[in-house]
């Protein structure tokens, strides 16, 4: 009883963590299912069919690749633009800082329907054809804000003396940036890019408004939900989940090992 009282918070915390993973476990388990009807919602029979034949349903892999393409492009552009803004905000004093900060914050505080519908309103008014580029443009727009916030935090956490030390040691502004500032901010930029990609890859609402006839992976899933989601979708989603988790845990592990080595060295 005493033990329970002492560890109550830990028990509840771990239960919540488990709760977070229940739906994901369902998705993964159902990827090994052979559904009885057309809807893959209840366990019927074990099957590796979906995993052996990932592209076995028309359109599934096409939409998956489209999402990766858009994700890579939007992440690249959004990360570059966002990083530049973050540098300007942290490193320079200029008029219009607070307006800029507000402009960065607003897209994150606006519901996705509004972001999606307003862009659609613009594209319709301009008679701009909907498709790959309109979706990419939209994704770049919301990625920028997240990148600015992440990179800004990293830059603000950096000791200004490091750059002074570089300047003191014969590094001109270009060399200071290349050999000191950039390598130190890079982990933050990569983290922001990873976040940006996963937001883009997973976005449904904004994409749905601006895709026209283009089918991204989430749009494919949405369409399939009405007539039964193919098991392949579960397999692909599980694959993406496991891969991203491995990447992040891997980074975490090397970090941890470095710190361990450090502690043993001192």
């Amino acid at each position: 009883m005493k033990w329970l009282r002492k560890n109550l918070i830990a028990i509840i915390g771990i239960l919540v963590l488990v709760y977070l993973f229940v739906p994901i476990a369902v998705v993964a388990i159902l990827s090994f299912n052979e559904p009885a009807g057309k809807f893959n919602v209840a366990w019927n029979q074990f099957s590796l069919e979906a995993w052996q034949n990932l592209c076995g349903v028309p359109g599934v892999c096409q939409s998956f690749l489209t999402s990766i393409e858009i994700g890579v492009l939007a992440t690249l552009a959004g990360t570059i633009l966002g990083t530049m803004i973050a540098f300007a905000l942290v490193r320079y004093r200029f008029r219009g800082r607070s307006t800029t900060n507000l402009l960065i914050f607003l897209p994150m505080a606006t519901p996705e329907v509004v972001l999606g519908s307003s862009l659609l309103a613009l594209f319709l008014n301009l008679a701009f054809p909907l498709g790959f580029w309109t979706v990419t443009i939209a994704h770049i727009m919301f990625i920028i804000s997240f990148v600015v916030v992440t990179v800004k935090a990293r830059l603000q956490g950096m000791d200004p003396r490091l750059e002074e030390a570089a300047r003191d040691l014969y590094a001109d502004p270009q060399a200071t940036f290349r050999y000191v500032t950039f390598p130190l901010v890079l982990p933050g930029i990569l983290g922001a890019a990873l976040l940006g990609f996963s937001l883009s890859f997973d976005d449904y609402i904004i994409s749905a408004f601006n895709a026209g006839t283009l089918v991204t992976f989430p749009i494919f899933i949405w369409g399939a939900a009405q007539r039964g989601i193919p098991v392949q979708v579960n397999a692909l989603a599980t694959l993406v989940f496991v891969l991203s988790l491995l990447v992040v845990l891997g980074a975490q592990f090397t970090n941890h090992r470095r710190r361990r080595k450090l502690e043993s060295a001192v």
Binding site: R161, L162, E164, R167, D168, D172
Partner: peptide, 20 residues
Amino acid sequence: EKPYRRHVNTVFQSYALFPH
């Protein structure tokens, strides 16, 4: 003279060693 051009070097407070 720019700091990176002058023949003067500094030992910084709390060292400012490049962590990377």
